[in-house]
Amino acid sequence: MLVAETPETLVKGTTQLLSPPVTVARVSAILENDEFSIREVAEAIGQDPALTARLLKIVNSPFYGFSGRIETITRAVGLVGADALYSLALTTAVMHGFRKIPACLVSMNDFWLNSLFCGVIARLLAKEAAVLHCERLFVAGLLHRIGALIIYMRLPEAARKILLSAAGDDRLIPHLEKDLLGFTYAEIGAELAKAWKMPSALQETIRWHLEPERAERFRLETSLLYLANRLKTVSMLGFPIDDVIQTIPDEVNAAIRLDETQIVAAMSKAAEQFADTAALFVPDAYVRH
């Protein structure tokens, strides 16, 4: 084992340098009160014009597909839900926050496009599985590798060794992290989600998406993210998705209850939706077709 750090110490050191914007933290505090109102949430978000504009752009996009234009955050909160809009607000803040990653380790555009593809797949799988508020699976997919960014920031030499050993195959990274560091990016990501007071479902889904059988309260969501992550990885490596479908663990199959036709349909839609979604969330990135 290379370092004496733990997920907790890494996150503690990071949150001193990187914390959610004041507006996002304020919304989080409001949501902790079970008797919060839509007006309170809308007023808190409305104090940040840039965040308001980003959220309204997302809500008015084909990503949601609402009929008629949504002009106000109050209306957006009412339609999308306070928790979902908070998660989107936090997501956009995170994507704008990690800017000091050494370019020699990772291209941030590539990182977010990779994560975005996972989010698109997870959301579509959730729709096939009839999950309510399936946008939370999109957020989980987008943030599932957030812990890796902390490794890049805090342990760049270790990150370099891991990436060199993986040689472009992301499937090897969790095992390499475990061998070299004693923990994985998923454990760090869960600690960050906890420190930032993300919804408990998001915390558990990020923590156990590599080992979905260990999820307790949110086994379905975690299993869907596990599958989305595996489908995303083999797709980006150029392998057939049958390689994943034929090896889905029994525990995952039992949780998601999706057949091969549904999984293939979700992947087909993901390929169609990816470019448009990337243009919405990562507008400066070049998306390969």
Results as ranks from 00 to 15, higher is better:
residue 76 A to F: 02
residue 57 K to W: 15
residue 61 S to N: 03
residue 66 F to C: 08
residue 89 A to G: 11
residue 57 K to Y: 12
residue 75 R to I: 11
residue 73 I to F: 03
residue 78 G to T: 12
residue 81 G to Q: 01
residue 62 P to I: 04
residue 56 L to D: 01
residue 62 P to Q: 09
residue 85 L to G: 06
residue 55 L to W: 00
residue 68 G to Q: 00
residue 70 I to H: 00
residue 79 L to Q: 08
residue 73 I to M: 06
residue 57 K to N: 12
residue 63 F to R: 14
residue 82 A to K: 00
residue 74 T to G: 13
residue 60 N to Q: 04
residue 84 A to W: 05
residue 63 F to S: 13
residue 62 P to Y: 05
residue 83 D to G: 14
residue 55 L to H: 01
residue 67 S to P: 09
residue 55 L to G: 06
residue 87 S to Y: 09
residue 85 L to P: 05
residue 57 K to S: 13
residue 75 R to N: 12
residue 58 I to V: 08
residue 61 S to G: 03
residue 65 G to P: 08
residue 58 I to H: 08
residue 85 L to K: 01
residue 71 E to K: 11
residue 89 A to M: 05
residue 53 A to Q: 09
residue 73 I to S: 04
residue 60 N to W: 04
residue 64 Y to M: 11
residue 76 A to R: 04
residue 58 I to N: 06
residue 62 P to T: 09
residue 83 D to E: 14
residue 84 A to Y: 01
residue 84 A to R: 06
residue 89 A to C: 06
residue 68 G to C: 03
residue 63 F to W: 13
residue 55 L to F: 04
residue 79 L to K: 11
residue 67 S to R: 14
residue 76 A to G: 05
residue 79 L to E: 08
residue 80 V to K: 05
residue 65 G to A: 08
residue 53 A to M: 08
residue 89 A to Y: 01
residue 70 I to K: 03
residue 74 T to S: 15
residue 77 V to P: 06
residue 60 N to T: 04
residue 87 S to E: 15
residue 86 Y to N: 05
residue 69 R to C: 07
residue 58 I to T: 10
residue 64 Y to E: 10
residue 84 A to Q: 08
residue 56 L to T: 04
residue 82 A to I: 06
residue 60 N to K: 06
residue 83 D to C: 12
residue 86 Y to L: 14
residue 53 A to G: 09
